[in-house]
Design a protein around this nucleic acid. Structure first.
Lengths: 217, 217
DNA sequence: GACGCTCAGTGACTAAGTTACTGAAAATAC
DNA sequence: GTATTTTCAGTAACTTAGTCACTGAGCGTC
């Protein structure tokens, strides 16, 4: 019941609505690497993440990929549900990056709540709003930002304060929508500057400040 | 009253809802080049376009710009309204590309209709859905598609069957999120292949099939 | 230890973006 | 109607990014 408290946008809901939300939703566990939605797999539930994170990525025909955004604990996957119901020809995929726990709200309940509660509508539109403005900023990044800056940002982001990032050059390239060779070259340059050390399947951060100063450019 | 018929997603609405929609909205005219929304200018209405088109673009700090999408007649500007209410720190701008006629639905009425009508909700979410999946595809284009292909596509799109496109290299570059010099070079190559002819402020299409075959790549 | 697979490094090349100009055409000012 | 300013396009040299084709290292497993 108290999971509602983890979503700031939901605490203001009327008690009746909260009760309905809790009664008619279920808590699900999704193992790591599960495809939550993707081409030919429309989600039947709106997910509110309690634990773990979901990576949403776009695949091109030529096999290249780019990570569009992530949904973390305390966030909702609003658009993936409400959104993908209408268009089956989308090509984005949502993958559980870790074991995920989430509240699953059936589409029917979602629709009822949208009808009944102005606060719930606000919650949903706020989530949409945030996602879309984030996509706008992401497009700006992809179109205009230098790759060294973007890679530095991504490393800082993925490190989350830890010292080591367990990932491959290929995966980093997919994060940025770039090519593996390009990431390798950039990492070599970072290594030359003693900002990182490399080993197979891992990047160790030696000088966070250096990366951060480049990332801030 | 009959403007509703121009929006396929709205014709199925119950008569009461249609009546409310028509009664409580107004038809507005917006002159060309008006900024409809932008940083510090949140829209107070949901717009349904009857005539003309709205260009939505993103400006970077360094003054570069990229056209995100367009809203044409028969389409709704759903997200710009519903979306931007929550986040004031967005940087996208919506500009009337021509004189625009539109139905303006006040936010309050929008919210009421969302509460009252399942069909209206479907209409709104379909519009969101389309926009977001389009943004996904756009990101894929920007990240992975070659510039000559994208330019050819854009020329075909902007021509709309006409022979001449009145635009500058600078504006074409902004469409693609590229640089003016790059567009100039590509247009020279197209000119060399006798696909286009150039004059100041205009591109004339000589061989549409040529452009289309490159665009299809 | 041999085999296969994933991951990373390299060089040569092409494509795209940047910088710093030049000159032509159009708009406006006088 | 000429002069000035502004906008638009062309160019060369250079840097950054993406592509192609290959090499070899690390690691699991048979």
């Amino acid at each position: 019941m108290d999971w509602i408290e983890r979503f700031p946008g939901l605490v203001a809901l009327e008690l009746v609505i909260k009760a309905q939300l809790v009664d008619e939703s279920s808590i699900i566990s999704v193992p790591k690497d599960t495809v939550i939605f993707g081409p030919g797999k429309a989600p039947e539930h709106l997910l509110l993440l309690l634990q773990g994170s979901v990576r949403v990525q776009q695949l091109s025909e030529k096999g290249r990929e780019i990570v569009l955004y992530r949904v973390g604990a305390g966030e909702s996957c609003v658009l993936t549900t409400a959104c993908l119901l209408a268009f089956e020809d989308y090509s984005a995929t949502g993958i559980a990056e870790s074991d995920v726990e989430a509240v699953a709200i059936p589409r029917q309940v979602f629709d009822q709540l949208m009808a009944l509660s102005a606060d719930f509508r606000r919650f949903v539109f706020t989530a949409y709003s945030k996602r879309i403005t984030d996509l706008f900023l992401f497009i700006e990044e992809v179109a205009f930002q230098r790759l060294d800056v973007r890679l530095a940002q991504k490393l800082v982001e993925l490190a989350e304060g830890r010292q080591q990032i367990n990932t491959t050059h290929q995966k980093l390239a997919a994060e940025l929508g770039s090519a593996r060779e390009v990431v390798s070259r950039q990492l070599q340059e970072f290594q030359r500057r003693q900002w990182v050390a490399q080993s197979r399947g891992a990047v160790v951060i030696l000088n966070l400040a250096g990366l951060e100063s480049l990332a801030a450019t």
